[in-house]
Design a protein around this nucleic acid. Structure first.
Lengths: 201, 201
DNA sequence: GTAATCATACCGACCGGTCGGTATGTGTCA
DNA sequence: TGACACATACCGACCGGTCGGTATGATTAC
C-alpha cells in the first residue's frame, strides 16, 4: 500500500536526486556542493542525510536512477523495440543533431562528464558507470547484429567493435562540442558519425 | 647572460610544472591539492607562489607548456613535417594502438580530462584548451588536404568535418578505455578509428 | 506512543592564499 | 676589492572560509 507518507518520501527523495543531478551536471561530482542542492530544493541537511547516508551514495543514486533512467527511456528502449534497428539508429542520431540547444552543449553529456571525472578516482563510480556504458554498447551491438540479419549492414562487420566505437565516438563528439561551446560543432561532428554508420551498410 | 640563479629559477619552476601536471592528471584541476604538489617536489608554498600568482595560473601554465608542448612534439610536428601525411596519420594511430600501457589508460588523456572538467566552469581554461584543440584539428585538416592533393584521399571529402570528427573520436576512445580501465578496449576502439581513416581513401 | 520525516546547530578537517622573514645572489661605486 | 643597496628565491606559520558530516530537536503520520 502506498501511503501519503510514501508519496512525500518519494517526492523529497526525487527532489534531492533531481537537484543533485543538476548540480553534478554543472560542477562535477567532487566540486558539487551539498549546500547548493539544499538551496535549490529548499530542504536541509537533515532531509538529505535521512534519505542518503553520504554524498557518495547520493552521487551513485544519481547515476543509477536519473542518468540510467533517462538513457533507458531515450535510447535503450527505442533501439530494443525497433523493428528496423538500423533505421532507428540513424533516427536517434538525427534527433540529436537537430534537437541540441546551447544549454545542453554548454554542460556536456552528464554521463561522459562523470566518466572522465570519476573513473580513475573512485571504483564505485567506475563500476556503476561501466554498467551503463556496457549496457549501451550491448544494446547497440544487438541492434547492429539484428540489422545484419536483415541484410541492412554488411555481413563481415564486427558488430562488437563497431558498437564500442560508436558509443566512444558519440561521447567524443559531446566533449568536442562542450569545449567549443557550440551546437554547430556538435552537429557537424555527429553528422560525420552518421556517415560512419551509413558506411556500415 | 644566464646566471646560476636563473638556472635554479628555471629548474624549480619546471619541477612545479611537472608535479602539478601529474597531480592534475590524477585528480583533475579542481581536486588537485597544492600540498600534494609541494610534497612531491619537496618545495613549499613560498616557492610556488613566487613562481605562480595563483593555483589558477599554475593550471593554465600546465596546459600551455606541459600539455601543449607534449602534443606539439608527439603529434603536431610529425604531421606537419610529413612528406606522406596520410601514412603518417595511420602510423600515429598505430603507435598509440601498440604503445599504450595500463597506467596511461588508467588516468586517461590529460587534455581530454581537463576539457571535460573545466570547459563549462572556467572561461580561461576553456580558451587555452580550445587553442590546443583547434590547433590539433587544424594540423589534421591540413594533413588530410595535402593527402587529398596527393590523391590518397577521396576528392569529395570534407576535410574540415573529417578532422573535427577524428579528434573527437580520438578523445572518445580515451574516455571509453578510461572507464573500462582496459588497454584492450582502447586498442579495439582505436582500431575502428583507423578503419574509419582507411575509409577516407 | 513510536517510528518516520525533516529542521537546526554545530564540529573538525582541509584548502587556497597571505605574510613576515631569511638567505643568497647581483650591480654599483668608492 | 670590498662594502653597501637591492632584487631574487624560498621558507613556513598562519588565517578565513568552505565543506562533508553528525547529533539532537521538532513535527507528522499511523
Amino acid at each position: 500500500m502506498i501511503t501519503a507518507m510514501d508519496i512525500a518520501h518519494e517526492t523529497t527523495r526525487t527532489q534531492l536526486l533531481q537537484a543533485a543531478f543538476a548540480e553534478i551536471h554543472r560542477h562535477g561530482f567532487q566540486a558539487a556542493g551539498l549546500s547548493e542542492i539544499l538551496r535549490d530544493t529548499g530542504l536541509t541537511k537533515g532531509a538529505l542525510y535521512h534519505h542518503f547516508p553520504s554524498k557518495h551514495a547520493l552521487g551513485l543514486a544519481v547515476v543509477d536512477e536519473v542518468i540510467q533512467g533517462w538513457l533507458a527511456k531515450a535510447i535503450f528502449q527505442p533501439l530494443e523495440e525497433a523493428e528496423d534497428p538500423y533505421q532507428t539508429l540513424l533516427t536517434l542520431l538525427d534527433q540529436r543533431i537537430h534537437g541540441m540547444d546551447d544549454e545542453a552543449v554548454k554542460w556536456g553529456c552528464p554521463l561522459n562528464n562523470l566518466i572522465q571525472e570519476m573513473s580513475a578516482v573512485d571504483a564505485d563510480f567506475r563500476d556503476h558507470l561501466s554498467v551503463i556504458l556496457t549496457r549501451w554498447q550491448g544494446v547497440v551491438q544487438v541492434a547492429l547484429t539484428r540489422a545484419q540479419a536483415q541484410g541492412r549492414v554488411r555481413a563481415d562487420l564486427d558488430c562488437e567493435a563497431a558498437s564500442l566505437f560508436l558509443v566512444a565516438a558519440w561521447e567524443g563528439c559531446w566533449g568536442m562540442a562542450k569545449n567549443r561551446q557550440s551546437p554547430a560543432v556538435f552537429r557537424q561532428c555527429l553528422h560525420e558519425l552518421r556517415d560512419y554508420v551509413r558506411g556500415l551498410a
